[in-house]
Write a protein that binds this DNA or RNA. Structure first.
Lengths: 190, 190
DNA sequence: AATATAAGCGAATAATTATTCCATAATTGA
DNA sequence: TCAATTATGGAATAATTATTCGCTTATATT
């Protein structure tokens, strides 16, 4: 008997991401995915039982990938500010280099497609930053403002900066990261 | 002859906003809008020639409303920091009190529905802030960073803070606005 | 009050898009 | 090599949803 080809799943995922980036989630349809992935319509239904399952499956896959990527290079023993900068750079870098993925994630979050499991996954990604900020407060380096607000502030800023750069086709380099990090650091430092 | 009822347009707009907030833009359809607005399907097409036109029309309407609301109370002669705070408060207040509207706007922005005119309108909303920041720089109060980046930073922060509060059902009061404004001000001040 | 004109409605139709089905091809295991 | 099984592709079908149509109703104008 013939076995499923694991590469086909990736092909379908990649095609979906490209299409959503180009035409938005609202315009996404199975025929287009098939064409973009160079697969027959029927093949899509071998790998996913419905459009909804395809979207949920891809969403969960991306969430897991991204959480892992952000924290990977942070060294616990480094000075506080160094760690914050490392995390900041990772976060921005990640968002730029996997822009399609984040675009997809954001548009799914406000759609009716996601099931409960996917929505739960969406929340738990920031425990690492939480702990880092607590350390900053104990070292008297960070303002005494609720961590959730500090995170929302920094994340919101970073997301919007990346979106702006992508729209304007501005390349993000070290100077950009240093400049915009100064905005973030000055805002949270005591 | 019978004249169009301007209230019907508002009814349709309001129904659309409720539906998009509840089920997302992807699930929006004309039958649902008719039902929610308590109007017949055909009536929708008296007021709008297509679903696309409805969405674009509502988008432009909201953009104009919001631009006006944000700048309305700003007094040109006040000190720079006072103006920035006024704008900040207005912006947050606006986003909280017209959450449905902003939810709709954001989801449209990433969809394939918007025409060129609507997309242009989307950009021009920040000329007022642009000029204010130039004033801040000339008074040596603001860092020498590209205005577009400063705006993306502040707007991103504000948007995410509001989203967070709405999700957690946190009420926004004066103390919240003062606390979070300190984040923004400290980040851009020289 | 009569008339003309357009609003208002929702069933019927058209268009789009998800899903299934079937013929064919490929691959595993015997 | 030969079944047996399942993937593959795309045409056919089903389901959903946008749009039109023909009728009724309301109301501005005379």
């Amino acid at each position: 008997m013939k076995l499923k080809d694991p590469k086909k799943t990736e092909l379908i995922y990649a095609a979906t991401l490209r299409l959503v980036k180009q035409h938005g989630l609202t315009a996404l349809n199975m025929a287009a995915i098939g064409k973009e992935a160079k697969l027959g319509m029927g093949t899509l239904y071998v790998y996913f039982k419905s459009k909804e399952e395809l979207i949920n499956s891809l969403f969960k896959h991306l969430k897991q990938l991204n959480t892992a990527r952000i924290y990977s290079s942070v060294k616990p023993n480094a000075p506080f500010k160094v760690n914050v900068k490392e995390l900041y750079d990772n976060y921005i870098f990640n968002r730029v280099n996997f822009y399609e993925e984040h675009f997809f994630i954001e548009h799914c979050s406000g759609s009716h497609f996601l099931d409960k499991e996917a929505r739960k996954l969406d929340e738990s990604a920031f425990t690492g930053v939480f702990e880092l900020l607590n350390r900053g407060k104990s070292e008297l380096l960070v303002k005494e403002i609720d961590n959730a607000l500090l995170i929302a502030h920094m994340m919101g800023s970073a997301n919007e900066l990346v979106n702006f750069c992508m729209q304007q086709k501005i390349k993000i380099n070290k100077s950009f990261l240093d400049k915009t990090f100064s905005l973030c650091w000055d805002s949270i430092k005591k």
